[in-house]
Nucleic acid binder design. Sequence first.
RNA 1: GCGGGUGUAGCUUAGUGGUAAAGCUCCAGCCUUCCAAGCUGGCUACGAGGGUUCGAUUCCCUUCACCCGCUCCA
Length: 492
Amino acid sequence: MSKTNGNVLMDKLVSLCKRRGFIFQSSEIYGGLTSCWDYGPLGVELKREVKNRWWHDVVTSREDVVGMDASILMHPKVWEASGHVANFHDPLIDCRQCQARFRADKAPHYFQCPECKLEFRVFDGLIEVKKELANYFPDLYARDVNTYAGSPCPRCGHNLVLLKKTCPNCGSVDLSPARQFNLMFKTHFGPSEDTASEVYLRPETAQGIFVNFDNVISTSRLKLPFGIGQIGKAFRNEITTGNFIFRSREFEQMELEYFVRPEESQKWYEYWVQERFNWYIKLGIRAENLRLRPHSQDELAHYARGCTDVEYKFPFGWSELEGIADRQTFDLDQHINASGKKLTYFDPETNAHLVPAVVESSAGVDRTILTVLADAYWEDTEHDRTVLRLNPALAPIKVAVFPLVNREGMPEIAANIFHDLKKYMAAFYDDSGSIGRRYRRQDEAGTPYAITVDSQTLQDGTVTLRERDSLLQIRLPKERLLSELKARLEPH
RNA sequence: GCGGGUGUAGCUUAGUGGUAAAGCUCCAGCCUUCCAAGCUGGCUACGAGGGUUCGAUUCCCUUCACCCGCUCCA
C-alpha cells in the first residue's frame, strides 16, 4: 500500500473516531498536547472490552496466572536496578549537512595512533582496517565505540585518538554534538521541589510485578510455572511520537510476567509467542494482517535469549503490537542484587531455592485499539455506508433499538425493549430521522445488532433483528431478544 | 529536537486587506411501514499570540497541533 493511501485511511479513521466519540485529541480547546489522546464515550467502552478480554484470557480464566495492580510511582532504585536509568536513553546526533539523525554509536568513528599512524574505522560496532593490519585486531567486533579514544594502540601502545566522526548517511563531519534524551518522565514526589524527592513515572508496568514477586508468591500459593499479569499506564518521553494513538508518551500496557524453571524457558517462550498471536486472531483481527517477527541476534538485549514481536499491518506499515521475550533470570537477579532481598522460589521437588526465568509478554492497549479499529474499518460501496466491522464482543454498543416510525405506540414498545436490554448490555435507543439514517449511524459506531419495532410488532409481538455486516434481518418474538443477543455476543 | 508539508463549522471544500459561502453531518420539529428520501427552523469555523494597518481570516513574525522522514518502542 502506498504511503498516500495509508495516510488517507488514517485520516479517515481519525476523523471517524472524533465524529463518533471514540477518540479525541487531548486538551483540544487549548490547541492539543502532542501525542496525547482522550477516549470518548464509545472509545472508553471499546478500551474496556479489550482490557477485559485480555484480563479474562490471560489472568482469570487461567489457573496458573494471578493479577496485580502496582503504583505508577515507585522507588527510584527500582529504575536503577532495572537498567532504565542507565540505558533508557539514546545519545543522538544530527547531521547538519543532510539533516539525518542517528544514534551516536551508529556514526562511523575514525581513530588514529598519533605515533605509528595506524588508522581504523569503527562502524556500527564493527572495526574496519586494512588487511595487513587485521592481525592487530583479533576481536573484530568492537567494544563500546567510546572506549577506543585513549586506549593503547594495538601496534605500538601509544594512546589512540578520535580523528573524526562522520554521518552514516552522507559522510559529512558537520555533526551536532551528541545529545542525551532521557526517556523517563521525572516528577517531584512531595510538594517541595528538591532533587531528593525526584521520582519517575513508570516507563513500563513490568517492574511493579518483579518488585512484588515475593509478596505475590508468599500469598498466592503458586507453583512453577506461573504468571503475574498487570494492566496499567506507562510513560515515556519518546523522541518521535505519532501515527495517532500508535506511539504516544502516555500509554497503557497489558503485561504478563510468566515465571518458569530456567531450563524450560525456551518451551514456554514458544508457547507464549503462539498463545499471544492467537489472542489477536480471537479478537477478530484478520490473520493476513498479523505476523510474528522474531528478533535477530543483534537486536536482542544481552540478557534475552529470544524475542518475537507480534506485528500488525497498519495503514502506515507493519508495526509492533506486542513483544514476547525470554528474559531469563535477568530482572529478578537485578532486584536481588540491588535490594539484597531473596526473590526466589522454593522448589518442593528439589527442596532448594531457585531464581525462576521469566517469559514476558508486553502488549499495548492503545495499539490494540488502533489495530481493532483499522482492521474493522470498511467502506461498503455497494450500500454507500461506512462500517466498523468490530467483533460483536468488543463493540461499544451491542444493540440499538428503533421504532420504525414514531406513532401507534411503537416508540413505547421500543423504549421498553431498550430498558430491558440495557440492564444486561450496552444498548442505544434512537427514534430520530429515517430508519435508514439510524442504521447508518450505528454501522459507523460498529454496533453489531439493531432491533426495529414495526407494525407487525403491534399484532404479534415480533421484532426484526438486523445484522450489521450482512444487513440481514430475522424476525423473532421480543421475549427471545435477550437470549438471542447473549448467545451472539458470547466471545469465541 | 531537526527538515518538509498542513491548519476556515463535526466533515469536505469556497473566499476576501473591510470580520465569511456552500454541501453533507448534527440538533428541534413536520412527514414517513425497513436502509443516509423530502419539508421547516437552528447551532457551529478562519488553531493561538503578537506585529504592520484606519481595519488582518487574508501580509509578516512567533507559537501550538497534525502528517511525512530521521529515531525508538507498547
